[in-house]
């Protein structure tokens, strides 16, 4: 992220924090906004939230690391989420995930060396009718077999 973009996002977040700081239980909505704006939750953002909400930074770190939706490191350009919910699992979504690891040469949870993809396993996307399912960004791919993977990845 460029410095200018960083600054702009900081300002946007500041507006959001100011608007919500007096609301009860504002921390999690603010972290959601930060994750959305930056793609992760940088340390300086955690410190700023701590200052305004008068919550120790350690506590904010604790909350941010508790929930799987929040990340502390930048992500790849596209996030690939392979569903490992039960319905997908019994239909071999593990095979799909393994094929992606092989194809992208990255472990689950990691980001490719070129910063293009972050590969994740997720628990149930709620479209079990399409099992096994994965999402790349907002695009949903259903009824997958491992051999579909190379062609799909090429599209990005």
């Amino acid at each position: 992220m460029s410095d200018a973009a960083m600054k702009e996002n900081m300002e946007k977040l500041e507006d959001f924090i100011q608007k919500h700081k007096n609301q009860k239980g504002a921390l999690i909505p603010i972290l959601h906004e930060a994750q959305e704006l930056f793609g992760y939750i940088p340390e300086e953002v955690q410190k700023r939230i701590a200052e305004v909400l008068h919550i120790p930074a350690a506590e904010i770190f604790g909350v941010a690391t508790f929930y799987s939706r929040f990340t502390l490191t930048p992500r790849g350009k596209h996030t690939i989420s392979v569903c490992l919910g039960t319905a997908c699992y019994v239909k071999n979504s593990k095979g799909v995930l393994e094929r992606l690891e092989e194809e992208l040469n990255v472990k689950t949870g990691g980001t490719t060396a070129d910063g293009k993809f972050t590969l994740e396993a997720t628990r149930c996307l709620g479209c079990c009718g399409l099992a096994p399912v994965m999402m790349i960004g907002e695009d949903v791919y259903g009824k997958l077999v491992p051999d579909d993977i190379p062609d799909i990845v090429k599209k990005y």
Binding site: K24, G25, L27, I28, F66, Y67, S68, R69, F70
Partner: peptide, 19 residues
């Protein structure tokens, strides 16, 4: 929610709404 299965438990959910 922010992706924690345990938040389906009532006291955990309450803690989460509290931030």
């Amino acid at each position: 929610g922010a992706g924690a299965f345990v938040c389906g438990e009532e006291t955990a959910l309450i803690a989460s709404v509290e931030g």
